[in-house]
Each structure stands twice: as C-alpha cells, then as structure tokens.
Amino acid sequence: MTERIVFIGDSITDAEHTSDLRRLGHGYVDMIFDAFAARGADVEIVNNGIAGNRVAHLRERWQTDVLDLRPDLLTVFIGGNDTISTLFQGSPTPVADFERDLDDILTRAVAAGIPRIIVIDPFFVSDAPWAGNWKDGSEFARADLDTKRPVVRALADRHGAAFIPLQDHVTAAIAERGGAIVAPDGLHPSSFGHRLIARLWLATYDALA
C-alpha cells in the first residue's frame, strides 16, 4: 500500500514547489523523493510548504493541508519566520504564542491518528556572509530563535514525535565547511544544506520503520 508522507513548513520546505511539475521543489523534499525512488519504495510525497509561513499560518491551514490528507507520516519544519518576521515586518511571535500554536497543531495531529510525526529543529546561521534584510539583526535573530528551539524539542517529546536537532548538525557543518556552504543568507539552506536535511530526515525515517 502506498505510504503518504506530508511535509509542511515555510520556504525551506516550499523550495518553489508550485513551479515544479512534480510539485516537490528544488530542496530537501525533492531529494527525499529521489532517495525513495532509488529504493523502489511505494510512497506519495506531498509538499505543503509555503514561503513566509509562521506557525500561526500552519495552524490556520492545518485541517485542509494536513488532517484532511490523512498522512501516514507527517513532517513539521517551522520557526525561522517567527523570528525573522520581527526584523522586516515588525511582527514578532512571542515565545508563548509560538508554543501555543505549535502545541495545538501537534495535539490535533495526534488526535487525528497520524501514526508517525517528525519535527525538525529550526536553525539560523548568525555569521552568514549575506543575510539580506535581516543581516543587521542577525544577533537578535539567533538569540530569539534560541528561545523557541527548546520549545520545539519539548513539544516533539511531549507528543511522541521524532525530533531532528538540525541546529546542532548545522553548527557542526559550519565548523567543518563554513556558513556560506551551509546557508549563505543564514536562513535558507544551500544545496549542501538541503542534502544535510535530507540525509538526517532519511536516517530518522529509517529508525522509525
């Protein structure tokens, strides 16, 4: 039976998937699909990432974009815009609001009977060589995201979801290769960064099997 896997999140997951005939984008979701194809696995992958989304946006579209699809496996990767939007939209997400919304969507996912959930830790590269509109606020961005990342881990544990500590792996990759190789603007992964996410995701998936 075909396994349906739904990915939901922001631009990192989106990766311009609506412009892709396969509707997968050019990032880690596409790489995961190719890995499954190489294995000969019978899977259906749905990319429901939307650039610019924060956790509140996921909460608004949770029923149609997650629950109605009845996934066998759900991946949630959100948090970067909840920090970055403070800098270029003047619209912060207090950590209490972030926790409330993330707790709500995970609670609803579990209540709907989604059997497996993977939650990915949001990351930020504070010393990236180019950070666009948020470059001058990179120290704030890293500090703000550092208050939200423990919430992500705690809620993943609370709801029995597998957790990928992406920031730890990104930090290790930066030490070996440099920030420009991983995420030149601090927030969006390079092809190397997307491969890193895909590799970590596949290892997590295999551990759940």
Rank of each mutant, 00 (worst) to 15 (best):
R22Q: 12
R23L: 10
L24I: 09
L24D: 05
G25T: 04
G25S: 07
G25V: 01
G27W: 07
G27N: 05
G27L: 00
G27V: 07
Y28D: 02
Y28S: 08
V29E: 02
V29Q: 06
V29M: 03
D30H: 15
M31A: 12
I32R: 05
D34T: 09
D34A: 09
A35C: 04
F36T: 02
A37I: 06
A38N: 11
G40A: 11
A41N: 12
D42E: 15
V43N: 08
V43Y: 10
E44F: 11
E44D: 08
I45L: 12
N47L: 00
N47C: 01
N48V: 06
N48I: 02
N48P: 04
N48E: 12
N48T: 02
G49T: 00
I50V: 15
I50A: 02
A51Y: 01
G52Q: 03
G52V: 10
G52Y: 05
G52M: 01
N53H: 11
R54P: 00
V55G: 04
A56P: 06
H57D: 14
L58V: 07
L58N: 09
R59D: 08
R61N: 06
Q63Y: 14
T64A: 14
T64G: 09
T64K: 15
T64D: 13
T64Y: 10
D65K: 04
V66N: 04
V66A: 11
L67K: 14
D68S: 15
D68L: 08
L69E: 11
L69K: 15
R70E: 13
R70Q: 14
R70W: 06
P71R: 09
D72C: 06
D72W: 07
L73N: 00
L73H: 07
L73V: 14
L74C: 13
T75W: 03
V76K: 06
V76M: 07
F77D: 05
F77G: 00
F77M: 04
F77K: 05
G79W: 06
G79N: 13
G80R: 01
G80S: 09
G80A: 09
N81Y: 03
N81A: 03
D82G: 15
T83V: 15
T83R: 09
I84N: 04
S85W: 09
